[in-house]
Computed example of a mutant assay.
Amino acid sequence: MFNSDSVVNLSNRVYRRRQRVNRMMLALSGATVVFGLFWLCWLLLTLFIKGGAALSLTLLTESTPPPGADGGLLNAILGSVMMAAVATLIGTPIGVLAGTYLAEYGRRGWLAPATRFLNDVLLSAPSIIIGLFIYAIYVAQVEHYSGWAGAFALAILVIPVVVRSTDNMLMLVPNSLREAAAALGCPQWRVVMFICYRAARSGIITGVLLAIARISGETAPLLFTALNNQFMSMNMNAPIANLPVVIFQYAASPYEDWNRLAWAGAVMITLLVLGINIAARTLFRK
């Protein structure tokens, strides 16, 4: 028998109640978005107002100065680039190979689930713990801070990000592609190299870029490993300047010129991370 109360119309009390609930939840969702964007915009506006005025060509041509003198952040920028490059070169192959095992070879058994769990733990571990770990096993043994120690700490932060992205992207590759290649007599390593990697290339590159964006602003692990250097130095076996630690030290100093350099360094790191994230999302869309 036809029930008029079940008809979706404005006179239906159930429909009106659901419509009110829907509007209320949409309003709450919109309010939370506005709330989050407000603080984000305030943070970025403050950052660019205070740091934008300090941006100049001098930042890229001169080293960090003593108090009361003019200078830039060249030595800190070079140190950060060197450590991030070494960390990426170390962490990317390990992460890609580990992610490949999880997606392609470890679909059965207990090892792959256990590895994924430990990788998730490492992914969410505070970076200061990584710095203390490298300090204990490397810095304390060689008895001095160094750029290598900083690069090793950053590499440990790179690995879980690359493992997760590689694993996820390879799992999205259709099994029909693997089966078609296997039917033609292609060995599994060739299937992975020439089919799976090509299909998941954009996602893997995205994970690497996101890992670089993560380590670009890490300060805590570098305080226990690379420390800092006031002068220009490209010796990775000695303490080396880097942007995050320079920003930390200069922002806490009582000198206004150092404070301005700290704001300028923060703007540079923000623009770098923003650019990397935009590039990663552009690649992922393709």
Rank of each mutant, 00 (worst) to 15 (best):
I77K: 05
G79H: 02
L78K: 05
L60R: 03
D70E: 14
A54C: 09
G68M: 04
N75T: 05
T61L: 12
M82S: 11
L74S: 03
G68E: 04
S63P: 00
G68R: 05
G79K: 00
L78C: 12
S80R: 08
L73R: 03
P66Q: 13
G68C: 05
S63N: 15
T58P: 00
L74W: 04
M82F: 10
G72E: 08
G72H: 06
S56E: 07
S80I: 07
G68V: 01
D70K: 11
A84E: 00
E62P: 03
T58M: 12
G72Y: 09
A76M: 05
P66K: 14
P66V: 11
T61N: 11
A84T: 12
P67D: 08
M82C: 08
T58D: 14
L59G: 11
A69R: 14
G71H: 10
G72M: 04
M83A: 07
A84W: 00
S80N: 10
A84Y: 00
S56W: 01
I77Y: 06
L57C: 02
G71K: 02
M82I: 14
L78F: 13
T58N: 13
N75R: 04
S63F: 00
L59D: 07
N75C: 10
L78Y: 12
D70P: 07
L73Y: 09
D70F: 06
M83R: 01
P67R: 06
A54Q: 11
L57N: 12
G72I: 09
P67A: 15
S80V: 08
S56P: 08
D70C: 03
P66H: 07
G72F: 04
G72A: 11
T61F: 01
I77V: 15
D70V: 08
P67F: 02
A76K: 03
M82Y: 11
G71R: 02
L73M: 10
